[in-house]
Design a protein around this nucleic acid. Sequence first.
DNA 1: CGATCATTCAATGGAATTATTGACTATAAC
DNA 2: GTTATAGTCAATAATTCCATTGAATGATCG
Lengths: 219, 219
Amino acid sequence: MSSPSPKLALFEQFALVAKTLGHPQRLELIEQLGQGPRSVDLLAEKLGSPIANVSQHLQTMRRAGLVAAERQGKYVVYRLADASVLAAMQAIQRVAENNLAEVDKIVRGYFEQRDSLEPITRDELSGRLRDGMVTVLDVRPADEFALGHVPGALNVPLAELDACLTTLDPEKDIVAYCRGAYCVMSFEAVSRLRAQGFRARRLEDGMPQWAAAGNAVAS
Amino acid sequence: MSSPSPKLALFEQFALVAKTLGHPQRLELIEQLGQGPRSVDLLAEKLGSPIANVSQHLQTMRRAGLVAAERQGKYVVYRLADASVLAAMQAIQRVAENNLAEVDKIVRGYFEQRDSLEPITRDELSGRLRDGMVTVLDVRPADEFALGHVPGALNVPLAELDACLTTLDPEKDIVAYCRGAYCVMSFEAVSRLRAQGFRARRLEDGMPQWAAAGNAVAS
DNA sequence: CGATCATTCAATGGAATTATTGACTATAAC
DNA sequence: GTTATAGTCAATAATTCCATTGAATGATCG
């Protein structure tokens, strides 16, 4: 037997993974990396944090087996270690959604009517895409859209939403999505579209999940 | 936008859940509670920790939405908030299993041959149970066995394994299980059974998962 | 009502985590 | 070479987390 019991040694490893997930900024990094590999530089810019800080977090995450790094020229490109990392993050989000009143309160903040915040599922969207009676909006920044998106989706970054309102067909239903189930950009978009009288809903989850299902296209 | 951005507020809630999972003792508590509701008292005894310490951890977990408490007479009985908590713990274990060399090393410590540590699935066991050509060992303590177990399983707590060796049919395959995928008691049992010449494997996961599939019986 | 048991609370000190700063290394461009 | 860029490292101080202790609360039982 090793010095501490193997049981405890195992739980310490599991705890290391969970503890490393236990920081808002690191979760945000995982969300970003869920879109695809990124350099430290770009990640720091997306988060609006100092490079040194982001670098430290990424290394903490590397030690916990969440991400891997590879040098490419003068950049160091990080990526998620594997799909189980996103799965773990989603599982944690589900716990929070089910059991923390605070989460409900934040989500509710975007919508008045309780029943209208139900998201549309991936399968449902697939079906309605074939009918052609739905407009799909990808509200992520253009660079993320370029790396992969739902086929037929329009890229309308949140900042440009108001300007694009007149070009949208008010007869069609609108489905908005962004980076994941709790990426608030799609919340914000749906909320604003509804205020303008559109029938809008959001997709139940976002890009990495859609891509994992094998349906994404690059532009 | 609100004082802290809603995005950050959400991630802080998720991080709270993950951070709370990030402590070995709390993971052990979840493993125990996965078996069923428990009093603080009993949990403290199972973990071998001071009651005050366990109480503090449980309250931390309650604040993070992982567990719920209910007073029953002079006891306070804690239980998992819902099934998503176990799912999150399993997702984290999967990340660790896939990406942390240390976990592999610990598991490997129990077994010499690489290929022989593959667990048997629940479905496979269900099938072989009908054939009757397999002995199922539940290596948890008797009190946990009493609250629910795989139909037909023999309760042989780890401490009594050696004494029971002679009563086992060496012609049958043996499947051992305990509390979950990484409860080391089943590792230990399989390792010792093999050393005695038995054909032993462990079940891919343990009691809460089997119960969740709707197949457990109480004794 | 007192006594006892189960649990929580409050306070302590020690350890770990975090953001920030500035120095340092490695690569590419000139 | 020299310079600029991308990233890491090392050191600091502020904060948070953790186990332990002993006191306080709440419920049962005689």
